[in-house]
Amino acid sequence: MEKNKLKTLRRSRRKTGIRKRITGVAEKPRLTVFRSAKHIYAQIVNDLDGKTILSASSVSAKIGNGGNVDAAKAVGTKIAEDAKAAGIESIAFDRNGFRYHGRVKALADAAREAGLKF
């Protein structure tokens, strides 16, 4: 099997295992993270309604190099500030199959410092 297909398959298996346990409800929505080679994206989702409440990304923040830790911190701070403005205090964090390391960890730490509880 090709290396990229194997990586994607393993990540999707991790993702389904995580999603079995984590769901976002109105009182405690789910913060999901996606990282690509060039950018990082975050969404706050209510799974019961199937709606995205808020989103932020290194693309929408117009960060030049969105594929680094500084960009992830900026996106984490932005999503937390938007969530606080929308009245969301606590969330369930979904790392979306990615390791809790590097950019994913930086985004989560920045969101915690900006006031989100998880």
Rank of each mutant, 00 (worst) to 15 (best):
R30I: 07
R30A: 08
L31H: 09
L31V: 13
L31C: 11
T32N: 08
T32V: 14
T32K: 06
T32Y: 02
T32Q: 10
V33D: 05
F34A: 15
F34T: 14
F34N: 15
R35F: 03
S36R: 00
S36Y: 03
A37G: 15
A37L: 15
A37S: 15
A37E: 15
K38Y: 10
K38I: 09
K38W: 03
K38M: 13
K38F: 08
H39P: 02
H39C: 05
H39K: 10
H39E: 07
I40S: 09
I40D: 09
Y41D: 11
Q43H: 13
Q43L: 12
Q43P: 09
V45E: 07
V45K: 11
V45L: 11
N46L: 08
L48H: 07
D49N: 13
D49P: 09
D49G: 11
G50P: 14
K51R: 15
T52H: 06
T52E: 13
L54D: 07
L54G: 08
L54W: 08
L54M: 11
S55T: 12
S55Q: 15
S55M: 13
A56H: 02
S57M: 04
S58C: 06
S58V: 05
V59M: 09
V59S: 01
V59H: 01
S60R: 07
S60E: 13
S60T: 15
S60Y: 00
S60V: 11
A61M: 14
A61I: 00
A61Y: 03
A61E: 15
K62L: 01
K62S: 05
K62G: 00
I63P: 12
I63S: 10
I63G: 07
G64M: 04
N65D: 12
N65A: 10
G66D: 04
G66Q: 06
G66Y: 03
G67K: 13
G67A: 08
V69P: 00
V69Q: 10
V69F: 01
V69H: 02
V69T: 14
V69L: 05
D70M: 14
D70H: 14
D70V: 14
A71H: 04
A71Q: 03
A71T: 03
A72W: 07
A72Q: 10
A72E: 04
A72S: 12
A72R: 11
A72K: 11
A72T: 10
A72M: 06
K73T: 07
A74I: 13
V75E: 05
V75D: 04
V75R: 13
V75T: 09
V75N: 09
G76A: 01
G76K: 00
G76I: 01
T77C: 14
K78W: 01
K78Q: 07
K78M: 09
K78H: 00
A80W: 10
E81S: 12
E81M: 02
E81Q: 14
E81G: 02
D82P: 03
D82K: 14
D82E: 10
A83D: 04
A83E: 03
K84N: 02
K84D: 00
K84M: 03
A85G: 09
A85P: 11
A86R: 11
A86W: 02
A86M: 03
G87I: 04
G87S: 04
